[in-house]
Design a protein around this nucleic acid. Sequence first.
DNA 1: TAATTTCCATACGCTAGCGTATTGACGCAA
DNA 2: TTGCGTCAATACGCTAGCGTATGGAAATTA
Lengths: 197, 197
Amino acid sequence: MEIKLPETKANTKRTSKLGRSEWIEAAFRLLTESGVTSINVEKLAKRLGVTKGSFYWHFKDRTELLEAVLDKWHDQYVIAKVEHMGGDAYTRLINLLDVVPRKRGSKHLGGSMELAMRSWARYDDDAENVVADVDRLRVNYVADLLRELGFPEEELESRAFLIYAYVMCQGIFSFEKTDDILERIHNTCTDILIPRD
Amino acid sequence: MEIKLPETKANTKRTSKLGRSEWIEAAFRLLTESGVTSINVEKLAKRLGVTKGSFYWHFKDRTELLEAVLDKWHDQYVIAKVEHMGGDAYTRLINLLDVVPRKRGSKHLGGSMELAMRSWARYDDDAENVVADVDRLRVNYVADLLRELGFPEEELESRAFLIYAYVMCQGIFSFEKTDDILERIHNTCTDILIPRD
DNA sequence: TAATTTCCATACGCTAGCGTATTGACGCAA
DNA sequence: TTGCGTCAATACGCTAGCGTATGGAAATTA
């Protein structure tokens, strides 16, 4: 009798069939398109080319899917993205300003996701906790970079908040500006928020 | 035969019965609590102590209510609020920073409304237009104030954007800070964004 | 008073979405 | 082959929400 590999969820290798992750990814797409409430089982099934029967095999119910979405957002879409950036403090900071893309066109998905998460957080305690945690992590990360750059300790928190607010709002607001105008504004903002001596 | 008063909507004086405005206000409450999709006729009716029959007397359908909400937000919740502020440029600017309250507790309704509107704007063109217009008006208003204060023309747009972003994010983020910490951060941010010579 | 208008209640049909139960196809192991 | 586990299809019941139809009470007008 052979020793069987542990039946972990890593066992999704079997074939190229559908796994939890595909459903979660599809849920993210719906989330950014039209908010949490638009994440519904039958629409997901249709997009994945299967029926509900499949969904309820992988998930207990819709809530379990939403929890998975929350977890993944916290771990992969945010933390990992920030941690894996290289370069010196200034470079990382400047790169950070591009996490939420400021380019127009095709509805800037990053901003949509941030928006959807925050709307969600308004009426769901789990989401609220996750978003709060993420915000803390991001602002602290920015503050650390600013410290490395030699900004005075007493304004780290505030300046970090401003930078974070700027990045978020780039992706959230609905302006109609051409790319070059945005570029110019971006440069000026960078100078104001991160003055170099 | 007497001359009849024009049958304008101002004719809602008749009794203290329900009018369009009550439905719209109730819709705003639902909007800030849990987003556009949560605005539904039967819940509104229940809160107003009537049945659907009443709603469909005042409105053609749910869409007509949503359009009214959009209009009212544009006209009353935003424009009027900004226009009717007194004082000199600096005072008005500082006051503006308090439009979206930064105090914690009870879910800061101003921020919830802003969030809900922006989520809405992601998948509805009418909402998108209204929000874009409002954002333009607000940023331009801030820029005008900054001009009065003598800031150089070439950084008006950027600085106005930063200030606006700061105000918005105060109401949107989910932090856990005590009021005094928020106060301290607020002062530092003000110094950075609106330095006085 | 009689007629008409205004506002709301009740009852109904319809669809979308959730979740369950049952069955079936396929792979794999004994 | 037989049996078991994995994944999906189908069919069903149930609720929430939209919109309609109709009736009725109260106020207004004639």
